[in-house]
Amino acid sequence: MKRSLAVAAVVLLGACSPGDPPAAAPAPSSAAPAPSSAAPLPSSAAPPPASVAPPPADCVTTTLDGLDLAERVGQLLMIGVAVNAPSGAGDTLRRYHVGGAFLRGRSTHTAAQLKSDIAGLQKGSAVPMLVAVDQEGGSVQTLKGPDFPRLPSAFRLGPGSPATLRDTTRASARRLTGIGVNLNLAPVADTVPKSIGEGNPPIGAFRREFGSDPARVAAAIRTVVPASQDAGVLTTLKHFPGLGRVRVNTDVSTGATDNVATVDDPYMAPFKAGIDAGSAAVMISSARYPKLDPAAVAAFSKPIITGLLRERIGFDGLVISDDLGAARAVTGVSPAQRATRFVAAGGDMVLTIVASDAAPMAGALINKAETDQSFRSRVDDAARHVLQTKEKAGLLRCG
């Protein structure tokens, strides 16, 4: 923030009007009068204006300024690592300065084992990583060891009391933060209509939704977000702008399409509720929404990410992709193009569960940034969003 310098005004005293009579001459004095301390100094002797030091840069800016292009690009990648053997991807994470690690798979390891493994991953990072996990509950729960009790599904928790939902979420988040996880890829903010129910493969079939009424889902999201984040684990609203009406799972098939969603879709209410509650991140789906953008899936859509999420809804946090590695929905696009198209559309962090994608994705992002100034600015903006999220997670240390 710039500060203006106050400029002292010089006031001229004793000016005569042209019509005033001349003043009488003063009586002679035997001694010259002492100079007045209020008399103005000659301009040549005026003291210089006091210098004002610029304000110190904030921690995010300081960190960003210390990163070269390759390191900034690295912040835009979240790479999948095996939850039971995360060190196997350590070389990839270090080589490409990766900003986040996603613990993929399922684990029954103890909290002590997991904490040691995650600490080992963080040791090699110049900038501490976001460490993410899918710990929704129900059928989507990565950690199921003795220190991680089975969580009820959102479908079961949604109709229950807000107190139970809050306490369940808070207890789970405390277990996660205790081992070094700082980002949960949850909650699911999708609404599945009763008329579709389990006929919705990605959400309804696994009972991952909080309900069939977007207003009730929004109420649940308003409870979950602060309960998790106040306990130390940031939340990710998924899968924007909604997967509740599709009839195809983007993980295993192409052609997932929501022909209903518009900018005024009531099914976006849970996402807006989560954003208003302060959710750190929003995940973008890989389905198509022809009424929002007839040309591209949501993950590659500037009208959806920038136009709708950023500008119309006003979200200024971290925008992360759904998996752009193994997901069948994007296999028609090369890994390099998946990364550049997502970032160009307004995304910040590219998630891939395929560790070998780091090389082509990082290379493509660097090459495009070196030849396209507007894209370079977009990379810098995305890196800033990642670092702001890390600051919110307590990962940045300055001074």
Results as ranks from 00 to 15, higher is better:
residue 2 K to T: 06
residue 276 D to A: 15
residue 104 R to I: 14
residue 271 F to N: 08
residue 35 P to N: 05
residue 338 R to H: 13
residue 196 I to W: 01
residue 214 P to N: 06
residue 269 A to N: 00
residue 282 V to R: 11
residue 289 Y to K: 05
residue 395 L to E: 09
residue 278 G to A: 11
residue 312 R to A: 14
residue 269 A to V: 07
residue 29 S to M: 15
residue 247 R to D: 12
residue 392 K to W: 13
residue 184 N to P: 04
residue 41 L to M: 09
residue 335 P to A: 02
residue 221 I to Y: 10
residue 106 R to Y: 01
residue 277 A to V: 12
residue 355 A to P: 14
residue 378 R to W: 06
residue 85 A to N: 14
residue 302 K to Q: 10
residue 133 V to R: 03
residue 381 D to W: 14
residue 116 S to Y: 08
residue 195 S to P: 00
residue 62 T to V: 11
residue 275 I to A: 05
residue 142 T to V: 15
residue 151 L to H: 06
residue 258 D to I: 02
residue 65 D to E: 12
residue 264 D to Q: 13
residue 138 G to R: 11
residue 113 Q to M: 01
residue 348 D to A: 11
residue 112 A to L: 02
residue 177 T to Q: 00
residue 288 R to V: 05
residue 80 G to I: 07
residue 349 M to G: 11
residue 231 A to G: 07
residue 180 G to A: 05
residue 11 V to C: 08
residue 292 L to Q: 07
residue 64 L to S: 02
residue 50 A to D: 14
residue 26 P to Q: 05
residue 217 V to R: 02
residue 217 V to L: 02
residue 279 S to E: 04
residue 281 A to T: 10
residue 94 R to F: 00
residue 243 L to D: 08
residue 328 R to A: 08
residue 185 L to R: 00
residue 118 I to W: 01
residue 370 E to Q: 15
residue 142 T to I: 09
residue 144 K to M: 15
residue 322 D to T: 09
residue 151 L to D: 01
residue 164 T to Y: 06
residue 329 A to H: 04
residue 385 H to G: 08
residue 168 T to Q: 02
residue 361 M to R: 13
residue 251 D to S: 04
residue 287 A to S: 15
residue 122 Q to C: 10
residue 62 T to C: 01
residue 354 V to T: 06
residue 367 N to E: 15
residue 217 V to W: 00
residue 204 G to I: 07
